[in-house]
Design a protein around this nucleic acid. Structure first.
Lengths: 184, 184
DNA sequence: ATTCTTTATGTATCTATTTACATATAGCAA
DNA sequence: TTGCTATATGTAAATAGATACATAAAGAAT
């Protein structure tokens, strides 16, 4: 059982999902391709952490909808008792920053401007998710936090982090672009 | 040539380093073990992107000090023309947040309190680095930014991001801990 | 004295992850 | 009608990364 396997179980604690859904849902915090997810789900099913049912769809391909077994729920409770491993970030732009003087201010601006667009897209997506959650009743409509007992408490805390991080990254990138522009 | 290989070249654009130094320097933005670094350096040397000289040390083991060749510098310039790949973050705590209701407020507080300590340690380290850079003359003593042409411009921009991010993460974790405490 | 940590370099093996190969249906755009 | 995207599931092969094995010497702590 590796971290991603526990991550899949964790997503399934909120609702049942297909492998394709899980692949999309894990992207923000543990990106993985479908070619990694499907074999893991098959293994989790063999060892009875999850079960699935075939769901026929008329307009789309049929799917397998997975849900937690009691063994899966127990595994989650034990996993939560363990401290979380340190987060890992890998960012090519940060590596490029070390040799920024090998290009000119125009080249550097282009790199940071592309990253700024990436952060802005992220913020827009998180804001849309926040609205959707409030409209669909996952979060209270008044903007307050769901209670700790609610299965949405975790999503609320995560979304808040994602929003704050995106805004900070936008501010930092704009600050860096201004520094580069001032040097011209 | 993978991303980490370019990252090693990028670090070498600032100064010459041993494989051990490079392993330590890459941790913040592209963590890698020495067992991954050493073979990459050997391969970069075979293909003449870097060269090394043996440096005998009296009080420590001898080392190989690597530096960029002209071919390595050219490779860096071409790499900088390409847009940077999207950053990747993998964080077990975020996965655990999805099933937080499977534990109690005490268990959840413990998880977030451990992470808070991690972020505080990070901030202290970054602040120490910032002081060191200013004392050693890498950054201007008045707190202003090094000029764009300076090989330290990138480090300055990166350190600023690290400081802002660590502070935001501390604030977010404290906010989450307060939410959990209020539910008790 | 002994154990632990840091510096320093390397290889062998295993696991995790990505890329490519494969297939199928529906909708949309050129 | 041809190609592109999204949904949906899978396998094969390659690469990237982690763990374990190996060695060595100095200093600090116990």
């Amino acid at each position: 059982m590796n971290t991603l396997s526990y991550g899949l179980l964790s997503m399934l604690s909120q609702a049942s999902f297909s492998g394709y859904d899980l692949m999309l849902k894990t992207q923000p915090f543990w990106p993985a391709k479908h070619s990694q997810i499907y074999p893991l789900l098959a293994s989790l099913e063999r060892e009875e952490y999850v079960r699935f049912e075939h769901v026929a769809q008329s307009e789309r391909p049929d799917k397998k909808v997975y849900s937690l077994t009691d063994k899966g729920k127990q595994a989650l409770r034990e996993w939560l008792q363990q401290p979380a491993a340190d987060p890992v970030t890998r960012d090519e732009l940060m590596l490029k920053a070390y040799c920024l003087s090998y290009t000119d201010p125009d080249g550097a601006s282009r790199l940071f401007a592309e990253r700024l667009e990436y952060y802005r897209r992220k913020l827009r997506r998180h804001e849309a998710t926040s609205c959707r959650f409030r409209e669909e009743g996952d979060f209270p409509a008044d903007g307050s936090a769901p209670p700790f007992d609610s299965p949405r408490f975790g999503s609320y805390v995560l979304l808040e982090k994602a929003l704050r991080t995106a805004r900070l990254n936008i501010e930092w990138t704009e600050w860096a672009l201004a520094l580069i522009a001032n040097s011209r």
